[in-house]
């Protein structure tokens, strides 16, 4: 198997600005949700990925329509990038009938098969065997499509993680395992849940390569994903990419996160993926004040429209509680 190499890439100014838009939109969506929880308009089920946006943008940017994603609970942005309208995602969070699950469950427990999005349960890591099954069908069809499966460092301690990675390694499946290592499994820090430093090392036990990268650098994530996509599409099997990052909010919006220090949070906020990328874009004269304002207006309009749509949407009908159990 060829070792992971730095993959050369070239993005046009338009593509870079599109990445920037997604970073801003995903951040704004989560931050608005956070406010909506505090206002009591969204009941619960909000697990933001604020601070982790570069992972979603960097991994989803190079995907095709036919590729499949298996997001975890902080990856709302991946639904948007894969084609679900912001208003539908907002309605889902409001438990409205116009949401993906018709109000039956919150957050990301719903999927859209036509868009290649799998919706997992609350059992973290349980999406990974499903990802292997999706990838198995691509192998059966000799198609060059890829599955991207997301998980946290916490989920890398579940049995499903090991069963799925082992199977993917044995079958050389076109799947990329993206670890969002945000340092805490709810309140438990990584050193209390793993005896190694890097989740990436676990890949070697299953016969493929793992790499640990800066998960707050959208271009680094994009670059690593491109390399893994190339391997997967070319039949060279799975890759594990561990993206080191940090979640700014608590585990859920109800979690005050007293288990970590202000200093630690401040240190990670200084590595905010958005200003880092903004500086990069400005230095290359891709982004000026006008483009920045335009992007921010577009983001605000999209979020406002989504919230308005969700608020104005009907609740599910009571009978929806007992329908759609069987095909």
């Amino acid at each position: 198997m060829p070792p992971i190499k730095r993959t050369k890439f070239k993005l046009s100014p338009e593509q870079l600005l599109e990445m920037f838009y997604w970073l801003k939109l995903i951040r704004a969506f989560d931050e608005r949700l956070s406010v909506l929880v505090k206002q009591g308009r969204v009941r619960s089920g909000v697990y933001t990925g604020v601070g982790q946006e570069a992972i979603i943008v960097g991994t989803c940017f190079g995907l095709r329509k036919e590729d499949y994603i298996c997001p975890l609970h902080r990856d709302l942005g991946s639904f948007l990038m894969k084609g679900v309208e912001a208003r539908v995602m907002m309605a889902q969070m409001f438990a409205k009938r116009t949401g993906l699950s018709k109000g039956r469950d919150s957050a990301l427990h719903s999927g859209v098969s036509e868009l290649g999005i799998f919706g997992n349960t609350s059992m973290l890591g349980a999406n990974l065997p499903v990802a292997a099954g999706l990838a198995l069908t691509f192998k059966m069809e000799k198609a060059d499509h890829v599955v991207i499966a997301y998980f946290g460092e916490g989920a890398s301690n579940t049995g499903d993680f090991h069963e799925a990675l082992n199977f993917a390694g044995v079958q050389q499946l076109p799947v990329i395992f993206i670890c969002e290592n945000n340092q805490y499994a709810y309140s438990v820090p990584i050193e209390k849940s793993m005896a190694i430093d890097d989740v990436a090392d676990r890949a070697r036990g299953y016969g493929f390569d793992g790499v640990a990268i800066n998960g707050n650098d959208v271009l680094a994530v994009y670059q690593a994903t491109l390399g893994a996509l190339k391997r997967a599409r070319g039949g060279d099997g799975p890759t594990l990419i561990e993206c080191k990052t940090y979640r700014w909010h608590g585990h859920s919006e109800h979690d005050k996160a007293f288990y970590r220090t202000d200093e630690e949070l401040a240190m990670w906020k200084s590595r905010d993926p958005i200003p880092t990328f903004t500086t990069y874009l400005r230095a290359r004269h891709v982004l000026d004040d006008k483009t920045l304002n335009d992007t921010e207006s577009r983001v605000a309009a999209t979020i406002d429209d989504a919230v308005e749509f969700a608020i104005n949407s009907a609740d599910p009908s009571p009978q929806d509680a007992i329908s759609d159990l069987y095909a």
């Binding site: 292997a132 099954g133 799925a164």
Partner: peptide, 14 residues
């Protein structure tokens, strides 16, 4: 890997 056997089946079914 019974859990994976079922999970893989679910992925393929989708």
């Amino acid at each position: 890997s019974e859990s994976a056997i079922v999970g893989i089946s679910i992925g393929a079914a989708l």
